Simulated assay, not measured.
Amino acid sequence: MTITLRHETPQDIATIESVTTSAFLNAEHTDHNEHLIVNALRDAGALTLSLVALDDQHLGEQHIVGHASISPVTISGGESGWYGLAPVSVLPDFQGKGIGSALVKQILVELKSTGAAGCVVLGDPAFYSRLGFVADDSLVLPGVPAEYFQTLAFKGQIPIGTVEFHAAFSVTS
Rank of each mutant, 00 (worst) to 15 (best):
A40D: 09
V52G: 00
Y148I: 04
E17R: 13
A146Y: 08
A86C: 06
V73F: 02
Y128R: 01
A135V: 03
G115W: 11
R6M: 11
A116G: 05
G98N: 02
F24Y: 13
G77V: 03
V120S: 01
P159K: 01
F133C: 03
D56A: 10
L5F: 05
S170Q: 14
T30P: 01
E79N: 15
I37P: 02
G156Y: 06
T4K: 12
G60L: 06
K155S: 15
P142N: 10
D43T: 07
H166N: 11
A40H: 14
V104A: 05
R130N: 13
A117H: 11
L111M: 10
D56S: 08
G98H: 04
I158K: 04
G115M: 07
G118N: 01
W82C: 04
L49I: 12
S50P: 09
A168W: 07
I158W: 05
E79K: 15
I13V: 13
H35G: 04
A116F: 12
T9Q: 14
G77Q: 10
V121F: 02
Q157R: 11
L25G: 05
V109G: 06
D43W: 07
P87R: 04
P10N: 14
A40S: 13
E164I: 08
I107G: 02
V38D: 09
F169C: 08
S138M: 05
Q157V: 08
Q157M: 12
F94E: 14
A27Q: 11
H63C: 13
H166Q: 08
D12N: 04
G78Y: 09
Q150D: 05
S80P: 14
A168H: 12
L108Q: 13
L122V: 10
F133M: 04
H32P: 03
L108T: 12
L91G: 07
T15M: 12
V144W: 09
D43V: 02
L54Q: 13
H58G: 09
F94N: 12
L111K: 12
T15L: 11
L41T: 09
D93S: 05
D55Y: 00
N26W: 03
S89N: 06
